[in-house]
Amino acid sequence: MTDYTLELRNVSKTYGDFTAVDDVSFAVPKGAVYGFLGPNGAGKTTTIRMILEIIKPSSGEISIFGSSSALEVRDRIGYLPEEKGLYKKMTAWSIIAYFATLKGMDRRSAKRRAYELLERYGLKDFADSKTEALSKGMGQKVQVLASIAHDPEFVILDEPFSGLDPVNQEVMEEVIRDIAARGHTVLFSTHVMSHAERICDQIVLLAGGKKVLDDTVENARMVIPRKLRLESASDLSFLDRMDQVLRMVPIDERGDAIPEGSGPAGNLWDVHLSDKAEPIDVIEQCLKEGIHLDRFDYSPPSLHEVFVHLVGDKAKEASFR
């Protein structure tokens, strides 16, 4: 039996007629880095708040460290909320130390830990500055550090990357990897797929309050067919007859599909492969036919594409509601 840090069973949250979270179940194993994905308004923040027992679910069960109440195990949890804010008049170190003491650390070690963390993540010079003097990105880093200062076994980060420049996004990834390296569990939400792709073991995809996907990153990629991009002046129609090829789509220079009947197909094609097919099968076939290929591109589908494929319509709908 796997040791789960967090388990959600049929959790729903309704506000009047509006269902923010609809029958969501998933489990985060101990030590995993779990990505919590979904478009705006998918119910990610609501779910996180329910996990932390800031709000109560309308139905369903949440178990965290085997406890039904996050408050009972709150000292083992670290939390970074989606909207970032700090006490303006407090210094960076004192704010980190304050939150650490609230989580049960004694004042002396909390202070030492605050300075340690600030130094490790490049904010040493700002340790004694009031947070109102910090830039937005620095303030956010301070807040992240505040949420992990007590070395929690389970860290929940709501949109940790938003508002950070690329360099600091990498620092943030490093923070998450550091936590994972200690065998601690991380659940973080984001809508930037590249981060999830790089650091997650597993992802949960939410859309319109419903769970759409819950799998490893590898498997998630399989959700959409793999594609080859070929360029050739020759006729490639023989490929369409192969078992391994699902279909051939003519595309233009920008990679967009050319709709049927809207002009002649050019030299560019997207070849959709079936599950069992390997890209090498296509190359072999081409060699056999003696076809000269000007271009052969293969890259596995990105999470971004998976995301758009799965929730694209819902996301658009949500953002225009």
Binding site: L52, I54, A70, R74, P81, E83, G85, Q143
Partner: peptide, 8 residues
Amino acid sequence: RIIEVLLS
């Protein structure tokens, strides 16, 4: 929104 951290 410090309140959220506090309430956690």
